[in-house]
Every structure is written in structure tokens, then in C-alpha cells.
Design a protein around this nucleic acid. Structure first.
Length: 486
RNA sequence: GCCCCCAUAGACUAGAGGUUAGGUCACCACUCUUUCAAGGUGGUAGCGCCGGUUCGAGUCCGGCUGGGGGCGCCA
């Protein structure tokens, strides 16, 4: 995660989650785009924890977000878990810094204390129904010292509000182009809460400033808040970074991605057996595309091809089906041994670990190779390899009934004798079973299907003879005998 | 209510005035095949609506409609 200081780029971007839950898919995509941009430009990615909401933030969530980012393969150059010259990277550890900036704004009369309670503001809003202006009425901007003194005596703890000058603000957004705002619609907003903690708007600006962030790449939900941020930069007499507001990720009904749409956290997909590479690739496709028709990208290709200009302004719907398809693509491309290793948690979970560990690595690799094209997610692995590794298999009642007809059983019995005498190589097996069918005037399917059920306990699966070879002579013969006993 | 953003099939998108509107997922059919899967081939399906500019509009402009976002002592 370190980068030497001889980097020529002074591009610095950040991903700034608040640790109030697991890493959300939408946030993961924002993180990914920041990562890709940093990599592409040889810049720096900073991870900053925005934990000023003390009610909802927790260290566990911070940890889980870090784990999930790492799982996806997003690496950062500076953050709470690494060294860096712009720390601390956790907002609650920066409270004194914000206070200092706030006090300066107060001194310069660019901000003021407000003693109003929520109730008082609401009440006044109701009274002035002519102007249906929502929010704060800038009441305390013109508070006399006398009035202020009275409030202080009452023991009221004030918030600090920024004086919002009336003007037109222009955001030159890298994704959306020129966007104009009229600040007359913005009320003097809170920058420091009454408990001395900065609000999001204030902390974000101070941090981006001090951490020398050059490009703020974030979700479109922050576009409307950007004028507030610019106002703070201006009050501080500082230049703004560049802004890029990415489209949002929505659920299947075009509403915000929520529990109703299924899994919304990165962690859930990890636990469902998705490969991080596939996930990485899939979310990069949401709101971004190259001019050609390419969709499958390695990490390096993605970094190489990425550009903010190619980012779409249109909100994208998260489609689990396409992710599933892409996951299959990655699984089929992966080395069998890698798939096996990645499936270990699921194998353990399924309770077949002991049987699996009895197999040689070679056998395991053969099994995975045979089933690879059937694996959609790693979670499928136990069910697909189970009948290879288990000593005994169980049959479904319906399958037994289907193939319990006397002639079939007799044929299988005869075949069993044949199999006893041959070498268990799939070519040889196939050869002799086909010959057996011919000699007995049977269609191959008359024997293939019952044989598959007898040997694997299933009506579908990989090539029958390849499977038999891997399962091994001893087990196969035993299984057929067992099947015949029903 | 006010402000901001957006609009190509069910979904993700290509398209920067002249295209038979291209690709991918999903869906359907066919094919390969001992089953399933994977693969191959083909198919259904789209420029939200109304005006304007232009010889010509998916593409430019305006309006409408629709969707999303913001207006917190949440971030």
C-alpha cells in the first residue's frame, strides 16, 4: 500500500465512508472509481473514516468496511490503518482541527452562534406560511449581545452556523458539466454541532482541504450539497478541488437500493460465494463503459481503460443476474485449485470437510475440473463435489423407483460384472459400456441414465465416465451393488 | 413545496446530425450431447411524449411527463 514519494502525480482522491453499517454496493462502486482513477493517474487514494455520527458509528463496522474493501481488491495509500502525512484519518480524532477552523470563521464574522432549538425553528416556519421556505430562517445572524447573553444564562448550548452570502455558484462537474446554484435557497447551515462536533459538510471540506484532495469523486446524492461545500471553501479563502458526481446505483424498481431488493452489502456477496474479481468487474460496469463492446476486464485493463469522461450520468440498476453470469465466467477461467481453496469456507459449512480432506490434491483438482462449468458461485461447490468424495451416497426415492424396473436392474447387474474386469479409465469405461449396450440391444441412454444415478445419486452431472474414473473403481462398484439392493 | 441531476429494449450500455440503431445479461428457439452445464447459431424486444432548429434529429433547443437526488445539531 505504500508508494514512494517520487511519484510525479499530485492527484489525490479519497473514499470516505461512515462506519454505520456494512460496505454498501453503491459505496463500493464509488470506492472503486476513486481507486481506478488514482491508479490510472498514478495518484493517491486516501481512506477516511467519517465517524462524526457518534450514535451510529462503530469500530466493528469500520473494521468490516476495511475488510470488504480489501476483499474487492481496493487498496489505499493512506488511511487509519496505514501511515501517512495527512492523518489522523478518522474524523473523531480530528475534532480539535475543526474547532480551530470554526473559531477562525467566528472571529472573522463569517459564522455565528445560533441558540435556536429545533422546536423554535419549526414553530417560526409554521407562522411564516407565506414563504414556504423550509429550514432555518437565519434568525440568530442578527442576534444582539443582550439576547445571546440571555440564552447563555438559560444554559443553551449553541451551534455554529455559516453566513451564506447571496450569489450564484457554479460547479464545474467532471461528469455533469456546468451546474448552477443560487445560494438564496440555502439557509445559514450548521457547521459545528452544539456538542462541539463538526457537521458532515464542515468536516468534509476541512479534511479534503488539509489532506490536499485534488478530485472529489462521490455519488450524485452530494451534488446538491456541493454549493454548501464551495461556500465553506470560499469562507476559508481556499480553492475548491475538482468535483465529479457519479450516477447512483438503484434497485430493480429504480428506487434506492435497499433490503427490499435483496442483498445490498458487499459482505453478503462475499458470503454468497462470489469471486472478488467478478464483483470488481461487475460494479465497474455500472455507469461506466468503454467505446467498444468489451465487458470482461482484468484489474489492470480496468485501470488502464478507466476515465471519468466515460462515466455515465444515468443512474444504474444493480442486476444480480448479470453479476451471477459474470461470476460464472470468472469461475470457469480460474484454476481448479484456486476455486477449491476459495470454496473451503463453504465446504466446511456444508459439513463435508473430512471427506474432502481424504482426497489427494490431484483428485480434488480433477473433481473441480469436471464440475467447473456448473459452478455459479462458490456456494455451489459442496453440493457439486459431495458425491465424489463421500464414501456412501443416498438415493432419492423417485430415482430408485424410476430405475427399479426388473430388466434395468438385470442389465446393471450384468454390467457390474463387466466393470469388475476393466481398468477405470474413462475411455475404456465408455468403450466397454457402449459395447455392452450394443451386445444387449440397448439404447445407450437406457443404461447411461440408471448408471449415472447408481454411481452419483443424481440425474445430472458431468460426463459419466469421467466421473466414474475419478470416483474410482472400488467406490463405483460398491455403489452399483448398493443401488441394486433397493 | 422549492432547487439540482437524468431519460436508447425488462436490465447494463455503444452512439458526440445522415447507422438496416451495435454489444452484453435475462428470455425463447435451434444446435452440440449420455444428462445437466458450458459452448455455438438464431430470435423476441429499444431511442418516454409534444413542439422547434435543420434538406435530414436517438443525437441540438424548449416544454411536458417520468425517475433519481437534495433542502437535518445524518453522513
Amino acid at each position: 500500500m505504500d508508494k514512494t514519494t517520487n511519484s510525479i502525480s499530485n492527484i489525490r482522491v479519497r473514499f470516505a465512508p461512515s462506519p454505520t453499517g456494512y460496505l454498501h454496493i453503491g459505496n463500493a462502486r464509488t470506492a472503486l472509481f476513486n481507486y481506478l482513477f488514482a491508479q490510472k493517474t498514478k495518484g493517491f487514494l486516501i481512506l477516511r473514516i467519517e465517524d462524526t455520527d457518534r450514535e451510529r458509528s462503530s469500530g466493528e463496522y469500520e473494521q468490516s468496511i476495511i475488510e470488504d474493501l480489501k476483499w474487492i481488491g481496493i487498496q489505499w495509500d493512506e488511511g487509519p490503518d496505514t501511515d501517512g502525512h495527512f492523518g489522523p484519518y478518522r474524523q473523531t480524532e480530528r475534532i480539535e482541527i475543526y474547532k480551530e477552523f470554526a473559531e477562525n470563521l467566528l472571529k472573522e464574522k463569517k459564522a455565528y452562534y445560533c441558540y435556536c432549538t429545533k422546536e423554535e425553528i419549526e414553530e417560526r416556519n409554521k407562522q411564516s406560511s407565506i414563504e414556504k421556505k423550509a429550514g432555518y430562517d437565519n434568525n440568530c445572524r442578527t442576534l444582539t449581545e443582550q439576547q445571546a447573553g440571555k440564552y447563555i444564562k438559560e444554559g443553551r448550548k449553541p451551534v455554529l452556523r455559516l453566513i451564506v452570502p447571496e450569489k450564484t455558484l457554479v460547479v464545474y462537474d467532471l461528469v455533469r458539466g456546468k451546474v448552477e446554484f443560487n445560494t438564496s435557497l440555502i439557509n445559514d447551515f450548521v457547521i459545528m454541532k452544539s456538542d462541539g462536533i463538526p457537521t458532515y459538510h464542515f468536516a468534509v471540506v476541512i479534511d479534503d482541504l488539509l489532506m490536499e484532495i485534488s478530485h472529489v469523486i462521490r455519488g450524485e446524492d452530494h451534488l446538491s450539497n456541493t454549493p454548501k461545500h464551495i461556500l465553506i471553501y470560499e469562507a476559508l479563502g481556499k480553492q475548491t478541488p475538482q468535483f465529479a458526481h457519479m450516477s447512483m446505483t438503484l434497485g430493480s424498481d429504480r428506487s434506492r437500493l435497499s433490503k427490499r431488493h435483496g442483498a445490498t452489502s458487499v459482505r453478503a456477496y462475499k458470503e454468497e460465494g462470489y469471486l472478488p474479481e467478478a464483483f470488481f468487474n461487475y460494479i465497474s460496469l455500472l455507469g461506466w463503459a468503454t467505446g467498444d463492446d468489451k465487458e470482461i476486464f482484468s484489474r489492470e485493463e480496468l485501470i488502464n481503460e478507466f476515465s471519468i469522461e466515460k462515466c455515465s450520468k444515468v443512474n444504474a440498476i444493480f442486476d444480480p443476474k448479470k453479476l451471477l453470469w459474470l461470476n460464472g465466467i470468472y469461475i470457469r477461467k480460474e484454476k481448479p485449485l484456486k476455486i477449491f481453496q476459495a470454496s473451503m469456507p463453504f465446504i466446511k459449512q456444508a459439513g463435508i470437510l473430512d471427506d474432502v480432506l481424504k482426497q489427494s490434491q490431484e483428485t480434488i483438482e480433477k473433481i473441480i475440473t469436471l464440475q467447473q462449468e456448473r459452478i455459479k458461485t462458490l456456494k455451489d461447490v459442496p453440493a457439486l463435489i459431495e458425491f465424489f468424495v463421500k464414501e456412501e451416497i443416498e438415493y432419492k426415492k423417485e430415482d430408485i423407483e424410476k430405475f427399479s424396473e426388473g430388466t434395468i436392474k438385470n442389465m446393471l447387474k450384468n454390467l457390474l460384472n463387466e466393470l469388475t474386469n476393466i481398468e477405470f479409465k474413462h475411455e475404456i469405461l465408455e468403450d466397454s459400456v457402449r459395447k455392452f449396450c450394443e451386445q444387449n440391444n440397448l439404447k445407450t441412454s437406457d443404461i447411461f441414465h440408471p448408471l449415472r444415478v447408481a454411481v452419483t445419486g443424481r440425474i445430472k452431472g458431468p460426463g459419466l465416465f469421467e466421473a466414474m474414473e475419478v470416483i474410482g473403481k472400488e467406490k463405483v462398484l460398491k455403489r452399483i451393488e448398493n443401488f441394486l439392493s433397493y
